[in-house]
Simulated scan of single mutants.
Amino acid sequence: MDANLETKSAKASTQIKTESKKKRNWKKGLTYLAFVGPALLFFLVIQIVPFLMGIYYSFTSWNGVSSAVEWVGFENYKRIFTNDPIFFQSFMFTTKFMLAAVLISNLIGFGLALILNAALKTKNILRTVFFLPNVIGGLLLGFIWQFIFVRGFASVGEATGWSFFQLPWLGDETTAFWGIVIVFAWQISGYMMVIYIAALQGVDQSLLEAAKIDGASTFQTITKIIVPLILPAFTICFFLTISMAFKIFDLNLSLTGGGPFNSTQSVAINIYQEAFQNNRYGLGTAKSIIFFVIVAIVTTLQVTATKKKEVEA
């Protein structure tokens, strides 16, 4: 009899514990849902759903206005690869711009970080000054620099006679390209600087002191000790600058508008004109899907390569 009572009591205790555990799990699940749910919902509505709709429209000839949506299959993609030289011209410009902008932006950002990581009295003020351009919107920044290139440089050139300031900075294919690179690097280098400074502050100072005692030069200290230790920062900065350079739109639009003669037209501007000015929304979304795949591949390869370097270091 006592054994039966003990068995029933043990079963009841186990059942109570199970129900209590289920309640705790429900509460925990509801708590997670309360915090994650709104963000997940907005992500689905703003990112995933439009992306899936874009894939669908890329197989249609929709003009972006009418209610009639005609399915054309892969015709848009065939047209892009066989009969759209302007798109490939804009892609080549964007790729060339990305390579130059990524290299220059990271060199300037890393250089500023090395300087401002030193014991300077004005380092906090200088950090703020160098970061400020990143706060200014791309369109506004483009119009400001358009005035500088067209009016400011011309005035300086007349006063000094220096040929550098007398160049047609936004009126020639070569100078317009470098003008966009200069403005992009000026805007984004401060952001990269902040990331590099955060990484440099995590470097063990005893290693640098030991290298100095052993007679290592400044260049050797940077290349052999500092750079390998902050490779994760390079991974982040390269990823950010590559993706931002590929997606350049507002800065390019306000500086040159893709001119002269589409020589500085980025892929983003080409897609925008195709979809919203030429009213070929299906073709524009097909271009955007191709562009998305290319950017995803390039950034994935970059992250994989730099992560591998981190492990080797």
Rank of each mutant, 00 (worst) to 15 (best):
residue 4 N to R: 14
residue 142 G to Q: 11
residue 189 S to G: 02
residue 102 V to E: 04
residue 55 I to V: 13
residue 244 M to P: 00
residue 6 E to C: 00
residue 246 F to S: 02
residue 256 T to D: 05
residue 2 D to L: 12
residue 107 L to Q: 06
residue 229 L to P: 03
residue 188 I to K: 09
residue 48 I to F: 14
residue 94 T to A: 04
residue 250 D to N: 03
residue 22 K to G: 00
residue 212 K to I: 01
residue 154 A to P: 05
residue 52 L to I: 12
residue 136 I to H: 07
residue 208 L to Y: 05
residue 308 K to F: 12
residue 213 I to L: 10
residue 186 W to A: 01
residue 12 A to Q: 13
residue 93 F to L: 03
residue 122 T to R: 13
residue 245 A to N: 08
residue 135 V to M: 11
residue 156 V to I: 11
residue 173 E to S: 09
residue 68 A to D: 12
residue 240 L to R: 11
residue 13 S to G: 09
residue 186 W to L: 02
residue 209 E to G: 03
residue 106 N to Y: 10
residue 99 L to I: 14
residue 33 L to F: 14
residue 98 M to R: 10
residue 116 L to Y: 08
residue 97 F to D: 01
residue 40 L to R: 06
residue 27 K to G: 07
residue 267 V to H: 04
residue 202 G to M: 06
residue 37 G to E: 09
residue 187 Q to V: 01
residue 2 D to F: 15
residue 126 L to K: 05
residue 263 S to L: 08
residue 243 S to C: 07
residue 141 L to E: 07
residue 233 A to E: 11
residue 42 F to K: 08
residue 181 V to T: 03
residue 29 G to Q: 08
residue 79 R to Y: 14
residue 202 G to V: 01
residue 282 G to T: 09
residue 121 K to T: 03
residue 161 G to Y: 15
residue 20 S to T: 04
residue 155 S to Q: 12
residue 86 I to W: 14
residue 124 N to T: 11
residue 71 W to G: 00
residue 170 L to K: 06
residue 168 P to C: 06
residue 234 F to D: 02
residue 217 S to M: 11
residue 253 L to N: 07
residue 19 E to G: 01
residue 119 A to S: 11
residue 98 M to F: 13
residue 177 F to G: 00
residue 296 A to K: 07
residue 50 P to T: 03
residue 290 I to H: 09
residue 56 Y to P: 01
residue 98 M to P: 02
residue 238 F to M: 11
residue 57 Y to A: 00
residue 279 N to H: 15
residue 191 Y to D: 00
residue 6 E to H: 09
residue 118 A to C: 05
residue 140 L to S: 08
residue 99 L to S: 04
residue 224 K to P: 03
residue 8 K to A: 03
residue 304 T to H: 12
residue 158 E to G: 13
residue 112 L to W: 15
residue 130 F to G: 00
residue 77 Y to G: 00
residue 221 T to N: 11
residue 102 V to H: 09
residue 210 A to V: 03
residue 122 T to C: 07
residue 61 S to N: 13
residue 236 I to P: 03
residue 32 Y to S: 05
residue 251 L to V: 01
residue 50 P to V: 04
residue 153 F to E: 04
residue 138 G to V: 02
residue 312 E to R: 13
residue 283 L to A: 05
residue 174 T to A: 02
residue 276 F to I: 06
residue 224 K to I: 02
residue 309 K to P: 00
residue 240 L to G: 01
residue 6 E to L: 10
residue 164 F to Y: 14
residue 153 F to N: 02
residue 192 M to Q: 12
residue 214 D to K: 06
residue 191 Y to H: 06
residue 72 V to K: 08
residue 285 T to Q: 15
residue 293 V to N: 03
residue 281 Y to K: 02
residue 154 A to N: 14
residue 181 V to Y: 06
